[in-house]
Computed example of a mutant assay.
Amino acid sequence: MSDSKKLLIQAAIQIGAGGTAGFTEICIMFPLDLVKTRLQLQTTATSAIKSSDPHYYNGVFDCITKMYRYEGLRSFWKGILPPILVETPNRAVKFVTFEQTKRFFMFGSSTPTPLTFTLAGLAAGTVEGIIVNPFEVVKVTLQSNKALASQAPSTWSVTRQIVRENGLGLQGINKGLTATIMRHGVANMVAFGFYFSVQGYTREYEDPLRQFGQKVAIAFTSGVLCSCVNIPFDVAKSRIQGPQPVAGVVKYRTTTGAILTVYREEGFRALYKGLTPKVMRIGPGAAITLVVYDYITLFLKSKLN
């Protein structure tokens, strides 16, 4: 078999496994992403004023309860269409980028090292951030809408409104691009670096159930770690892409500026708003994504070889 054919087969496997993993994770874990965004958009200043507001949230479970009560069960999937449309092909591209860039970070080693996985993860996350950012802008706009799910605007109408009013650039459908790249770059750097490095140092069990449990535990830990490391960029992204505190006045414009403003006005802990639902989502989400990717890859290889 020629090298070009081998490369095409590898890419096909990576696309199939990555796309399947992304679609599965989004459908299962999306409601927690919405809760995280709602908490991140809630500023300390407005919280003090609107503590009696039914859309003011005291925490994860209070947010879940009030959303169900005032917006209905369907509200937990507000804004899911953009992630579904982008995440299936996006995860495919991310895993292809990760696998194909590893060879550029070997630095003379015959096998991938933890540094290889980390830098390839950073490259994959950077590509992912660029791809998903327009969809994130639409998603955050939809998630910030607190009307009943049946009364909320459609994905397409929100997209058209953003483009019509602010264009395709960094003030419109691509606002918050730097923050999104930082969020995904740092997250994947940590997640891929940890997951694939630790797997290289652990024993492989003959018992499929024990082996599966080990993979899930490593992937879950990688998700928790990347959530804790990248959340300040996530908060900045939500503030930049979401509704501004005062209509018509852009308060959160740049990644660094947003982080500094949140820190100065609301304190250090505000940079970790939404951490609980983020960990609740990304921990098992990473387990689903990475383990599904691993097993689908093995399955496809067995069928194509």
Rank of each mutant, 00 (worst) to 15 (best):
T118L: 14
Y201A: 13
T159K: 01
T101R: 04
P134A: 09
F212H: 12
T116C: 11
A152L: 04
G125K: 08
F212N: 10
E99D: 09
V127T: 13
T113A: 02
A149Q: 05
N188D: 11
Q199F: 02
M189S: 11
F194R: 02
N133G: 08
S197V: 03
S150I: 10
P134E: 09
N145P: 02
F107R: 09
F196T: 02
L177K: 00
Q214E: 09
I181T: 05
T126A: 13
Q100D: 06
A147Y: 03
L177M: 12
I181F: 08
V163N: 07
W156H: 09
K215F: 06
Q100P: 00
N188M: 11
I162A: 05
F212W: 15
G125H: 07
A219F: 06
T141P: 01
E136D: 11
S110H: 10
L119V: 09
A217M: 12
T141M: 03
T202R: 10
P153V: 03
N174F: 14
A149R: 07
E165D: 14
P112L: 08
K146G: 01
Q100W: 14
V216W: 10
G193M: 08
A217N: 03
I173Y: 00
K94I: 07
K175Q: 10
V186D: 00
M106L: 15
A191C: 15
R103Q: 13
A187I: 01
F98P: 06
F117H: 15
A217T: 13
G213E: 04
I130C: 13
T97C: 12
I173M: 00
F212V: 02
R164M: 03
A191M: 15
Y201V: 07
V190M: 08
T159I: 01
T101W: 01
P134R: 05
T178P: 00
T178C: 08
F117E: 15
I181K: 05
Q100V: 09
I130S: 05
V158I: 12
P112Q: 09
G167V: 07
A179F: 06
V140N: 06
A123V: 14
V163L: 10
N145A: 11
R210G: 01
G108I: 01
T111K: 15
F196W: 12
T155A: 05
F104C: 02
F98R: 05
Q199D: 08
K102M: 15
S157Y: 03
V132Q: 14
P153Q: 08
A217G: 03
L177G: 01
F117N: 15
I162H: 01
A124V: 09
T101Q: 03
T178H: 04
K94C: 13
P112F: 08
A149H: 12
G176M: 01
T118C: 14
S110N: 13
V163I: 15
T180H: 00
W156T: 14
D207Y: 12
T116E: 10
T97H: 00
Q100R: 14
Q151M: 10
Q214K: 15
A152K: 03
A149D: 11
I162V: 15
E99L: 06
A149C: 06
M106G: 01
